[in-house]
Design a protein around this nucleic acid. Structure first.
Lengths: 132, 132, 132, 132
DNA sequence: GTGGTCTAGACCACG
DNA sequence: GTGGTCTAGACCACG
């Protein structure tokens, strides 16, 4: 399975950190559609954190359609079609880019530096080249 | 002066919204270096919020070097050199790009779509073209 | 834990008094790295002051790297490397020594008296002799 | 006369900055006993600050016995005996050394480094070597 | 008038 | 329970 690294002193809530890393795992192909995830209990135990925290991460991802919760198999990566580029997601992306780019501009980071970093990071997460 | 719009329903704390919009104002050149900002009290009153909330936004930006607090003149936009592209900022940017790009990839947004949006937003904030 | 004594009449803000005494506690080894501090609420209640005042002391020390705020465990003394002798700290020290030594000189305090007091106080805070 | 440099964004009140620099001038011998200081009006005008601010600095120093206010000559540096090493001063010095040395210790500054800086600064203010 | 400090009290996310 | 956020209101130093 994957490696999840938590930063307990980060301002980012732990459940968010888990959710983000699971999505990153899916993006990178380390987690395949239909692949089962560890149970809430075992993951919580592995990470040394509260059950509720893991559960909240799973619920959030299920809510957005990245995971499915099966009676039998437990939690699995969405085996059917993943959620697409919704209007909500685009709005969130734009909003985040706004704040980040504004600070980048004030700090004197050029457009090409900004985009180069965005590209580099995108590519580092797109290991499998889904045939774009 | 500027227009600050708050979304009281947002998960983003009000003081963060204020700070982000002030930085955006600086990036766009609507707030010039050395320009005085409204006093904590008057801005709070204009926005219909508590003075402490505005103060927290100002303190955060002062801490990071985007604002100065003068004895008499009150709060002004940093008149000297703005903070540059620090290692901390780059790390924060990379971290944010990671989460955003991972979700973008999973949702099927291509690299070019991702970068195009980043570019479009950067440019909309870089109205003054500081001679890049 | 420690004993914190407040002088409510002092010109020194209460949150500064708290911060200074916590640093003194760390210097003296009464507060060990990783050791948990009382929660904002309990310390405020113990000292008979408002929780925001304690929080401000904690935030200041967190900002400077002397404390960490953990999601669950609450506030702990920096378990990793403490902040070192930064240029900022040296500047602050020099600035303070300037004002103090000038007044000492005008009042007729000799260099050896001035240094002797500085040494005596330094030693009284350096109980553990970190192998200098 | 002297050169007084103000830092308007410093946390140190302007009147304190003025008072400290005047004392430093006396320590260094740049201001001699009996020497007249500029009038409140002219100094305020030179520094581009409020009359009250200069006045407060002068009053503070008069209070402590470093200045005298004459009907005719205006404000002069104490021509008679300067205030000595009072218990209050020693207490203040000790208190400041406490906070400074504690932070120095936590940051890993050794006793000799601490004392060396104190000595260096004392000497830079003791240009005239009053025959210690 | 302006920011700094402090209090009292409340709600919420997180765990 | 713990910190984070926000409000309402007050006093003070500074200028």
């Amino acid at each position: 399975m994957m490696f999840i690294e938590l930063d307990l002193q980060s301002e980012t809530p732990i459940y968010t950190q888990i959710a983000e890393q699971l999505i990153e795992g899916i993006a990178r192909g380390q987690l395949k559609p239909g692949e089962p995830l560890p149970s809430v209990r075992s993951l919580a135990s592995d990470l040394g954190i509260n059950l509720h925290t893991v559960n909240k991460a799973y619920q959030t991802l299920k809510q957005d359609g990245f995971l499915q919760v099966h009676r039998k198999q437990g939690v699995v990566v969405q085996p059917d079609t993943m959620p697409g580029v919704t209007a909500e997601f685009t709005a969130k992306l734009r909003q985040q880019f706004r704040a980040l780019s504004a600070e980048a501009i004030v700090r004197g980071m050029t457009e090409s530096e900004f985009l180069k970093l965005a590209q580099e990071v995108y590519r580092s997460n797109n290991l499998q080249q889904k045939g774009e």
